[in-house]
Design a protein around this nucleic acid. Structure first.
Lengths: 144, 144
DNA sequence: CCATGCTCATTAGCTAGGCTAAGTATCGTG
DNA sequence: CACGATACTTAGCCTAGCTAATGAGCATGG
């Protein structure tokens, strides 16, 4: 265990640095529209999950419920998210992306990939292969 | 070109997703202290560069100068950053981390690595090898 | 069957971080 | 030396995040 930990520490530092930098670059590639990162992230989670309550969405996004209330409010104002009452529990609300919300999501999704895809273009096939393997591992790490 | 681009697109999506999720997890691993992410990031950049002017620091952090004025102000209030006049240019200011700032930086640095290092511990040596190669590639991509 | 306590969502009020526009001081050059 | 450019700050605005408090609905025990 100790030996493995010794191997993991410098890797953690390098990896975190790379992730931080890349994350900034990708986040800065904001398209013409005016959705903020938080709004887009919430919309994405809703889109992927299909439908969620505010509490569930707050948990997924790792923010407190009042924060999610604000963000969802903005998305509602733009007509990107709609709320329907919960069928059995009068306290809860069901949030889902509207058709327009799905369209906007798709636009942003492509714009966000643009910069990164271009950068990856310039790598060798072998390097891309390495990154593909690494991406799988990283996703498992992020979930676990 | 077209064929390479076809290869890069899905990889960009997967990679971005992994980076986004991991970035959140790492960022949430905030220690007991009360420095915000932006403050810590600025302190880190100063620490790594040795000393910078506000403009340079703003460029590195990819924010506008007025934003950096605020952040540096907070760090100054805590005694983590000190400013000295520029030797030849009266308009400019030199920012640098104080001894206390360096100590605080080191604490946070370790705390931030903690979660990731533990997660990496659970991987196989081969997987860590893949991640190490990937980290190098990603750093080049982020710079370039 | 209803009183009491829990959960969900929101509101209120605060701080931090981001922006643009405008102001001030200094530099550098014609 | 006057005038444009540059460096930094100030002012004012918005979003995002938090905690505390409020209100509405559910669920359960007497």
């Amino acid at each position: 265990m100790t030996t493995e930990r010794a191997a993991a520490e410098p890797l953690a530092k390098t990896l975190r640095d790379a992730i931080t930098r890349l994350g900034r670059r990708v986040r800065q590639a904001r398209p013409v529209g005016d959705l903020t990162f938080s709004q887009l992230s919430a919309l994405t989670s809703l889109q992927l999950a299909g439908a969620l309550t505010p509490r569930e969405l707050a948990d997924v996004e790792r923010v407190q419920p009042p924060t999610m209330t604000k963000i969802v409010g903005k998305l509602e104002d733009r007509g990107l998210v709609a709320r329907t009452p919960h069928p059995t529990d009068g306290r809860q609300v069901i949030l889902a992306a509207t058709e327009q919300g799905k369209a906007v999501y798709a636009q942003y999704e492509q714009a966000r990939n643009e910069w990164l895809a271009q950068a990856l273009d310039r790598l060798s096939p072998e390097e891309r292969e390495t990154l593909a393997s690494a991406a799988d591992i990283l996703q498992r790490v992020a979930r676990g």
